[in-house]
């Protein structure tokens, strides 16, 4: 048992007990190590969100077991409670869960529940605020005075403040403007690098996944159909499009150019990579 998180043969059904069960997650096996940064991609309704709710025990799978840090998280109530601090989940549109009078208090909600001393809580809040680029002035404001992007960052900071070993973000950039999107993605990357925590990003934006993740998990019809390195996953472009997913726009462009007879590689996933490859070609002219 050397993986930090292990999901073994997990199945989950929302219609538990009825005859014609429909599984939201079926026979899923998944391992994760500290420090990894993984993207989970899949079509709407493929079971992504259900899958992540199993990670911290919000949903108890019908069969299979979940190990976090070597412990079966469903073994007793206390383990089930404490796993929430090891696996921090930030759901879709997390800004709607803000409730405190000030941003500071809201970020402090998680650490307070961990029964930390007030000094420790304060430290946690300040460092989480730093990770999410929240200024000191903002900490004293009401969360309801902030803009959409700022609210989102506060909500993410609220989860980061628990110092989870794994940070799971469900569509973290959905509904943000391009600037807010880029900023948030950058902050998540920095968080992963400085703290060494594992990060899981659930998304159906391929650009986002490509710019962040080293490993990509493809979920389709309640199952994991592919779990591999980024390059490998996007080399299956036909399979991806058959399950309603897509390769990044840049890759699409390169595939088209290749089809048109231009001699170019097709394992290009970010605009930066593309620029790198195209630069010598432009210079040659």
């Amino acid at each position: 048992m050397n993986h930090f998180v292990e999901l073994k043969d997990i199945s989950y059904s929302y219609t538990q007990g009825s005859k014609n069960r429909v599984f939201a997650v079926k026979d899923v096996n998944f391992n994760l190590n500290k420090g990894e940064i993984v993207g989970i991609i899949g079509h709407t309704g493929s079971g992504k969100s259900t899958l992540i709710s199993v990670f911290n025990g919000l949903l108890k799978p019908a069969s299979g077991s979940v190990f976090v840090d070597g412990q079966d998280i469903f073994q007793d109530k206390k383990t089930l409670y404490n796993v929430k601090f090891k696996v921090g989940i930030c759901f879709q549109y997390p800004e709607y869960q803000l409730f405190e009078e000030t941003v500071f208090k809201d970020i402090a909600f998680g650490p307070k529940n961990m029964k930390l001393t007030s000094d420790e809580v304060k430290q946690r809040v300040i460092s989480a605020a730093r990770y999410c680029d929240i200024s000191e002035e903002m900490l004293n404001k009401s969360p309801f005075e902030l803009s959409g992007g700022e609210k989102r960052r506060v909500a993410v900071a609220g989860v980061m403040a628990m110092n989870p070993d794994i940070l799971i973000l469900d569509e973290p950039a959905a509904g943000l403007d391009p600037a807010g999107r880029t900023k948030l993605i950058g902050l998540i990357r920095d968080y992963n690098r400085t703290t060494g925590s594992a990060v899981i990003i659930v998304s159906h934006n391929m650009e986002e996944v490509c710019s962040l993740c080293e490993r990509v998990v493809v979920v389709n019809k309640s199952k994991i159909v592919l779990d591999s390195a980024l390059d490998d996953v996007f080399s299956h472009s036909e399979m991806l499009s058959s399950i309603g997913l897509d390769v990044p726009d840049v890759t699409k462009l390169f595939l088209k150019l290749k089809a048109a007879g231009v001699d170019l590689p097709t394992d290009v996933y970010t605009p930066e990579q593309a620029a790198e490859i195209l630069k010598p070609l432009i210079n040659r002219r």
Binding site: F85, F91, Q97, N113, V159
Partner: peptide, 13 residues
């Protein structure tokens, strides 16, 4: 249900 899940994930008891 969504809010409960989110707050539970932050350790609300």
């Amino acid at each position: 249900q969504r809010i409960i899940n989110a707050q539970k994930s932050r350790g609300a008891d």
